[in-house]
Design a protein around this nucleic acid. Structure first.
Lengths: 218, 218
DNA sequence: ACCCCGCTCCTCCCAACGGCCGAGGAGGGT
DNA sequence: ACCCTCCTCGGCCGTTGGGAGGAGCGGGGT
C-alpha cells in the first residue's frame, strides 16, 4: 500500500530534494522524475503513479498544462496531481485548481505538509497550503455574498420555484407550460407572481435575481 | 508567543479531549471553554483568544452563527475561527466559510491536522481538511469552467459589449437606447447581433451567457 | 480608389410578453 | 362549515421583443 509518486520539476536540486523527502517517508515511493512538462506527461501515462507532484514553472508544457492533460475535464482516467510552485500568485492557484489539481503547495512549505498533501491526493482528497487557502477563501466568500440581499421579502411557492428555474434558463412561457404540463395561461400567472414577488420588471430581472441569490448557476 | 485558544463544544468529552490535545502542544494554550454558542461568543469577546475552535452543533447559537458574530463581514475586529464538526455536509462547509471561518475540520481528523489548523489560523492563514477541500474544489471548478465554453465563436464589438451589459441587467431596448444616446432601432440592431453571435434565442439567454462567461455578476 | 466593417437608423410584421380583470377546484387550518 | 393559499385556467389589450429587409456614414486596409 505504498503511494507511488512522480516528481516533475526542471530544477535538479529541487527535484532531487523533493524526491528524497518523499522517498525517506514510509509509505511513499518516488517511481519517476521528469525535468520538463512533456516528459512529465509521458512518464505519468507510462508509469501510472498514484500522485504526480508537478512544478508550475517548467520548460515545454508548464505545470498547469500538465495538470490539464492529466487531470483536466474530459480526461478519461484522471490522475491525482499536486501542484507546487515558488511564486504565490492567484493566477497560478486558480489555473491549477481549475485544471483539476488535487493539491497546491508553495515551496516554502514544510516537509510534513508536502507528505500530507501527497497522502491526501493519493486517497482522492486534496490539500491546499494554509496561506493560499486563506486568499482562496476570501475570493470564494466575495463571490457569493448574496443569498440574503434580496431574499428577505418573499417565500416562493414550489411551483414558482420551478417556473423561476425555467425562466432563468431563457425558456418562453409556452416552453415552460409544455415542460410543466400546464397551460400557457398558468405559466404566465406564475411568471406574473414572480415579477410581483421579486419586484422585477421583466423576465431578465427574474433571471438576474435567480443568479444573484444562487438558485441558478451553482 | 503561545497561541491562546478558546474551545467551544457542547459535548463535554469532546471539548475536554480537544482541549487536552491542544494544551499538550507546546506553543498552544487553551484559555477558555464554552458549552454553547452564547457562552462561546461572550467568552471570546472577553478573553480575545488568538483562535476560536467551535463545533457546529451547539445549543443556543450554532457554530456558524457564532462564526458570523466573531468573524463575519461587518464585524469590527474579526477573530480567527476554526469550525469543527462530525457531519461532513456541504451546507455546513459553505455556511462556515461564508461566515468567515479560517478553517474547517472534521472530528475524524488526526490531532496533527487540528494543531496545524490552529497554528495556521493564528497567523492569519486557513486550513481545510483534505477530504472537504476535495469537494470544495469540485464545486469551485464547476462554478467557473465557462469563460471558454461559448467564447471561441465570436469577437463582440465594443458597442455590443456595452449593450450586452445592459441587456444582462434587464434593461429594455428603449432604456438601452437612452443610456447609450442612440435610437431604439439601433439598440435593437445591436441586440439582434448579440442574438446571432451568441446563438441565443432571446435576451434572457443573452443574460445567461453574460453571467456564465463572467462578463457580468463578478 | 476601392472595399470591408462597425455604428447608425429606418420600415413592416407578427409573436411573445406583461398588466388587468375574473374564476373554479384541491387541500389545509380553525 | 368556513377561510385561505396554491394551482389551475380563461380573455382582453397595449407594449416589447425579435426577424427580415434596406440604407447611409466614417475609418482602416490593400
Amino acid at each position: 500500500m505504498t503511494v507511488r509518486v512522480l516528481v516533475a520539476d526542471d530544477q535538479d536540486l529541487v527535484r532531487t530534494g523533493l524526491s528524497m523527502i518523499l522517498d525517506a517517508q514510509p509509505g511513499i515511493q518516488v517511481v519517476g522524475q521528469a525535468a520538463d512538462g512533456h516528459a512529465a506527461v509521458e512518464l505519468a501515462r507510462r508509469l501510472h503513479p498514484d500522485v504526480c507532484l508537478v512544478d508550475i514553472r517548467m520548460p515545454g508544457l508548464d505545470g498547469i498544462e500538465v495538470t490539464e492533460l492529466l487531470a483536466g475535464r474530459g480526461v478519461p482516467d484522471p490522475m491525482a496531481v499536486v501542484v507546487i510552485t515558488t511564486f504565490d500568485l492567484d493566477e497560478y492557484v486558480h489555473g491549477a485548481l481549475r485544471a483539476g489539481a488535487r493539491g497546491f503547495l508553495l515551496k516554502d512549505a514544510g516537509p510534513e505538509l508536502l507528505v500530507q498533501a501527497v497522502h491526501a491526493a493519493a486517497v482522492g482528497d486534496a490539500l491546499i497550503a494554509p496561506n493560499i487557502t486563506r486568499r482562496l477563501l476570501s475570493t470564494l466568500a466575495a463571490r457569493e455574498p448574496s443569498k440574503r440581499r434580496t431574499q428577505p421579502i418573499d417565500p416562493l411557492t414550489d411551483r414558482e420555484e420551478e417556473v423561476l428555474a425555467l425562466v432563468a434558463r431563457g425558456r418562453t412561457n409556452a416552453e415552460i407550460a409544455a415542460d410543466l404540463f400546464i397551460g400557457q395561461t398558468t405559466a404566465k400567472t406564475h411568471v406574473a407572481s414572480l415579477l410581483a414577488k421579486i419586484g422585477a420588471r421583466n423576465r431578465v430581472e427574474i433571471a438576474m435575481w435567480a443568479y444573484d441569490t444562487g438558485r441558478v448557476g451553482d
